[in-house]
Design a protein around this nucleic acid. Sequence first.
DNA 1: CTGATTTCTTGTCATTTGTCAAGTAATTAT
DNA 2: ATAATTACTTGACAAATGACAAGAAATCAG
Lengths: 193, 193
Amino acid sequence: MNKASLNQYFHSLFPIEKEVVEKITESFSYFELEKNKVLIDVNTVSTQTFFLERGYMRSFILNEDGEQVTTNIYTAPCFVNDFLSFFKQQPSKESYQTITECSFWETSLENVQFNFHNIPDFREFSRLLFVVNYHKLNDRLIAMSSQKAETRYMNLLKLQPHIFQNVSLKIIASYLGITDSSLSRIRREIGKI
Amino acid sequence: MNKASLNQYFHSLFPIEKEVVEKITESFSYFELEKNKVLIDVNTVSTQTFFLERGYMRSFILNEDGEQVTTNIYTAPCFVNDFLSFFKQQPSKESYQTITECSFWETSLENVQFNFHNIPDFREFSRLLFVVNYHKLNDRLIAMSSQKAETRYMNLLKLQPHIFQNVSLKIIASYLGITDSSLSRIRREIGKI
DNA sequence: CTGATTTCTTGTCATTTGTCAAGTAATTAT
DNA sequence: ATAATTACTTGACAAATGACAAGAAATCAG
């Protein structure tokens, strides 16, 4: 329950002084959630931002047929928030829930705003977070529009094998943009080779 | 060739004083490109950021088979840059080219950095740009993984009909994640109804 | 431990989309 | 104006994926 991993995360993203990081993370407070608990509920305005220290999470929306579509899977350590809801103070269109037991560090928009306007390195860090997340999303979009499901599955398996130990195939299938029976068939075919 | 539309764009995104906008856009300079010209080339480090004042652009990558996959279509007025290349000063993985004749306002990373760290409203504006662009990308990803091609086509036609007057169906098809023959068939089917 | 629930797999068949090849229409370059 | 190129459409067939239903395996709640 110390801030070592939170502080470390700042250093991992770009060079920043120890004292500056400590000033930034001063306002963060710790909490835990069991598995399958809601972190950010759909239609609520998000006032906190979260650092996922330990565990697995996902975001999802409900489509026209009322089915859950997993939009993202979050693997600690990383920041989790709904950008649109948090920064524009609008109701979230997605829900965010824990998949495993998770631990978090959270802080408020007020603190983020203070740091953003008063600590230059935090500004750079924030922007870098956006750039990195935008880039990840872009890569997924390219994969979704130019690769077949089997390729997307193979890449996920290669790049994030630990996800398969912690997240159900149903959620993974939805994240890959296919049904769980299709994923099951793909896994069988791969196994044959 | 005055900065009216550039300045106006800042005001349209969030409340900001006229004088502040003028200070921000002071360093921007104007240029034009004919159709089918490269704005940002793949594998180059982007040192400028661009405001697309007039015209249509696209970004694309080459897939394993050497085919162009359109990753985004840009409709003026909007900012165009490769976030990863510009802010991390890395070689761009995508190419950006004009589709029609275009006019631009550009400024350098140095100017952006100066404004980012010295003009609070510019920080807010920058972050909002990221939030909005992230959100658009996220919506496209959700559409790609949960809607069929016909639905994606119908939505594009409804929300951005002008694109169909200015961008070839081949590019639109690629942007929608399908082949041009599939798009052609979808259009025929729609026509029947 | 036991029944209930959820996850995962599998089979059959339908639908969507891709591939390839050919043809027509439109645009561009000289 | 003419030839070359590019854009768009179409058809036949193949491949990928979805829908639905059923059963096996794993997990969960009491």
